[in-house]
Design a protein around this nucleic acid. Structure first.
Length: 308
RNA sequence: GGAGGGGUGGGCGAGUGGCCUAUGCCACCGAGCUGAAACCUCGGCGAUGUUAGCGCAUCCGCGGGUCCGAAUCCCGCCCCCUCCG
């Protein structure tokens, strides 16, 4: 019996340096990076998402970057399927699969698993458009009391999803969720932690850098290329803010402040989620070079026989 | 120098005699999250002194006063803004 492939997972909020550390790890361990960044999927979002350029990847193969059109859609189930396909391919080449990213739902879909019930139905959702959220919550309470108790009456997104699953399959989302299983690989998760003040400074520096690299021009170009408000790509930190700046609603300084604030808030949400994850080996990156951190992670990985 | 407006918790700002143990927003902090997740949602949160903590006391520019009761009314002072000289 062949042991399932081992996967190195690198968790880190925005601006913890995980992109550079993943590249270092790829070089030291002989690995390939699978991006779990919910924005790097989209073609065209380069500067706003601080996507690593080909030069920055330094010869380390990267997957799931630029795999979706700007106005396209992607979701956690698709991501899981991609990872399920990519990991054995990478391991088959004798390389270490390095799953790196800050997309919490996407990482969860792999680590915790995601149930295989019915997918999204736009027709179903449209039919609910006119109905008040609390009414929908009441309907959910009738169908699935457990889910209704867990989901706040005002959390429309999740209420709708639960009703959608119920309507399409005749089974409750609660029942489905219990069947979710992690992908059948061996995982070792490393989390990158950074002291708050230092982390905050990194967010500011990163935002300055984006502006210098041409954030405003990039977003202007994307608007011309059909970036529309309803799309997933539009909902990226920095995009709405920059559009407001292009329309004259924000000065350049205000734009900077707004992006820093939105990014920080993202960092906090990501951190809260990662913090709650079990079985994560935490590594403090404060004030350290990427190579140094990667060296520590690689050593632990080898010691624990990650690829044994 | 004259006339008017204003000083409220980290920021903006409401409150103009008792319901102020000061609304709201922002920032900040925490939490939830199972096919949009960089989404969506909920909670906490003024200052100082004192205390192990619960708590208690004081604080709405500063100092007095009126009143049973003052962020709110009166007097004085300080500071800011606008206009006139």
């Amino acid at each position: 019996m062949v042991a399932p492939p081992a996967v190195l997972i690198l968790l880190g909020a925005t601006a913890t340096g995980k992109t550079a550390i993943a590249v270092e790890l790829g070089r030291t361990l002989g690995g390939e990076v699978v991006s779990a960044d919910s924005r790097a999927f989209f073609r065209g979002l380069d500067i706003v998402t601080a996507k690593p350029s080909v030069a920055e990847r330094r010869g380390v193969p990267h997957h799931l970057i630029d795999c979706v059109a700007l106005d396209g859609a992607y979701d956690a189930m698709a991501f899981r399927a991609d990872v399920e396909r990519l990991v054995p391919e990478i391991a088959g080449r004798g390389a270490v699969p390095i799953l790196a990213g800050g997309g919490t739902l996407y990482v969860a879909a792999v680590l915790r698993g995601i149930f295989e019930g019915p997918g999204r139905s736009d027709a179903f959702r449209q039919a609910l458009d006119a109905t008040n959220t609390e009414v929908l919550h009441g309907r959910l309470a009738d169908a699935d009391a457990v889910a209704a108790a867990k989901i706040h009456p005002r959390d429309r997104l999740r209420i709708v999803r639960a009703l959608e699953v119920w309507a399409q399959s005749g089974r409750t989302i609660t029942a489905w969720q219990q069947e979710a299983r992690p992908l059948a690989f061996r995982f070792h998760a490393f989390g990158l932690a950074r002291e708050r003040a230092d982390h905050r400074a990194a967010v500011v520096a990163r935002t300055h850098e984006m502006l210098e690299r041409g954030l405003v021009d990039e977003v202007a170009r994307l608007r011309g290329a059909g970036l529309c408000p309803g799309s997933q790509a539009f909902r990226s930190v920095g995009v709405p803010e920059t559009l407001a700046h292009l329309d004259g609603a924000l000065s350049r300084d205000e734009l900077l402040d707004e992006i820093v604030r939105a990014t920080w808030s993202l960092v906090r949400r990501q951190s809260a989620w990662f913090r709650a994850q079990p079985d994560v080996t935490w590594v403090d990156v404060t004030g350290r070079a990427a190579a140094d951190v990667a060296g520590e992670i690689a050593a632990t990985w080898r010691r624990e026989g990650g690829d044994a």
